[in-house]
Each structure stands twice: as structure tokens, then as C-alpha cells.
Amino acid sequence: MPLRKRVTGAIVFRRFTQTIKDNGGDDEAYQLSIQAETEELFGCSVRELYEGTGARRHRRDTLPQPAQEAYMVNESLSANELERLEGTIGGESQDEVNAQITGVVRQQAKQTRKWLPW
């Protein structure tokens, strides 16, 4: 039996960040992606999400369950799409690569948002 782990939001998030990296994205691409998915999924910034839900800042496991699930679903689907696109994302500069990656995440988040109850 292969060794498998129960999938958590943290595991999904790590796969998501790995796919950003594998597509040539740097730390800025990661930050822009977080910004984009939060805006699209929740209609607010990361700071506002933490403040508005009374969660402990920068600990996503203290966010309300629906919010954690929304991130998890979106990051899983975005990672699938970024994996599919691997090798096709390119540009003349790091900025262009980052913009393309962020665009993929934002598009996915717009789709994911349609299935969320809020």
C-alpha cells in the first residue's frame, strides 16, 4: 500500500504554491495569486477577511470553515489548471510570467465563486 495522507487545506495549499513555482512564478506571483483569489472568492482583502471573521491573523486554520473550504477548493482547482499549463506559460520578463499565473488563479477563483453560497 502506498503511504498516503489525509488531505488538508495545508497540503492543498502547498501543491498550489508548488505549481506556481513550477510555472516559473516567484514570490511575487505567489503574493499576487493570494491577493487575486481572496478578492474574487470573498470580495475583500486578506487582512479584511481575518479582521471580519475574528480569526487569528495569518493562521488560516482559525478562519471559519466555509472560508477554509473555499480556499481549499479554489487552490486545488487552480493547481490542476497550472499543472496542465506547465511548460506553456512564458514571457519576456518575470513580470509577464507572474501576470499570466495570477490571471489563471483569478479566472479560476471567478468560476469557483459561482458555486459558493455567499
Partner: peptide
Amino acid sequence: YETCLDAWALISISFNFTPGHR
């Protein structure tokens, strides 16, 4: 600061300054 969702990512992504970091 504004986009920090997970504190650990500060250490291993945002502030992981290597000579190639922008």
C-alpha cells in the same frame, strides 16, 4: 503584510531572500 495568509509562507516564500531574489 497585507497579503499574508499563512505565516509560514513569510519565512519560506516572501522572506526567503537568496541572491536571485528580486
